[in-house]
Simulated scan of single mutants.
Amino acid sequence: METSKVYHIGAATSLAILIAWLLAWEMVVAPLKPGGSLLALKVIPLLLPLRGVLKRDVYTLQWSSMLILLFFAEGIVRGYSDRDAISRMMGWGEVALVCVYFTCALLYLRPYKKAAKKIARELLDKVNRATHE
């Protein structure tokens, strides 16, 4: 299987699992209030990039790799500070899923960034040659 396809599948899968993970955490596994809490609404920002990630949109993968870091921070805080052991475990699971997404997204985007830098370098060279003539 092509490497970029593996990275895309990894990013899309980890994002979908993260959404399900967070919903399960706040609604069933360890909700703050019995029956679920409004904290489940935190998955809404993750739903915004889902379509673009599934379609391999480079721009969406770029900005979502920054958005996902908010969930990394939340997972770290809750992994260390929640009193309930199950909730702490869910926090560390969130951190792991975020790390998978972030890594896969960056590795998927790497060739695009290299190509963009090469094009920018070539354009700069053309401009420099034109101004020196």
Rank of each mutant, 00 (worst) to 15 (best):
V77K: 12
A116Y: 09
L69F: 04
G52Y: 06
P34G: 00
R51A: 15
T131I: 14
A96K: 04
I9V: 14
V29R: 02
P111L: 07
D125N: 11
K42V: 13
T60D: 05
Y80A: 14
E26K: 13
C104I: 02
K113P: 00
L107F: 11
V6T: 13
I44G: 01
P49W: 07
R110M: 10
A115D: 13
V95R: 06
D82E: 15
S87H: 08
F102Q: 09
L38Y: 10
A115I: 02
V95L: 09
V100L: 14
L41P: 02
G10I: 05
A96M: 11
K55A: 13
W21D: 06
Y108L: 10
I9W: 12
L47Q: 05
I17F: 06
A20W: 01
E2C: 01
L97K: 08
I68H: 03
R78P: 00
R51C: 02
L41F: 14
V95P: 10
K42G: 12
V28T: 07
S64M: 05
S4L: 12
I19H: 03
Y108F: 15
I119F: 09
D82A: 15
W25N: 10
L109K: 09
K33P: 00
A116Q: 13
T131N: 11
R83T: 13
P45H: 05
A120W: 01
S65G: 01
V53A: 03
M66G: 01
L70G: 13
L48N: 00
I86G: 07
A96R: 01
P31K: 07
S14D: 11
K118P: 00
L18A: 06
P111R: 07
L46V: 03
L18F: 08
L109N: 10
M27T: 09
E74K: 11
R83W: 06
L70Y: 11
M27C: 09
G35P: 06
S81D: 12
C99A: 15
A11L: 08
K114V: 13
W25A: 03
L123I: 05
F72A: 10
P45D: 05
V6W: 13
L48V: 15
I68T: 05
F71S: 04
W25H: 15
L124E: 15
K5Q: 14
T3M: 14
A11K: 01
G75N: 05
Y112C: 00
E122L: 13
R121V: 03
L50W: 08
A96P: 02
Y101H: 11
L54A: 12
G10P: 04
V77R: 13
W92G: 06
A85H: 08
A16F: 09
R88N: 04
E26V: 04
L106S: 07
L22K: 11
S14C: 09
G10H: 06
K55F: 00
I68E: 05
E74S: 15
L23M: 12
R129G: 12
I19R: 04
L22F: 04
A120N: 13
F72M: 12
K113C: 00
E2S: 12
D84F: 03
W92H: 04
L18M: 14
E74T: 12
G91I: 01
W92C: 05
L46A: 06
V98A: 09
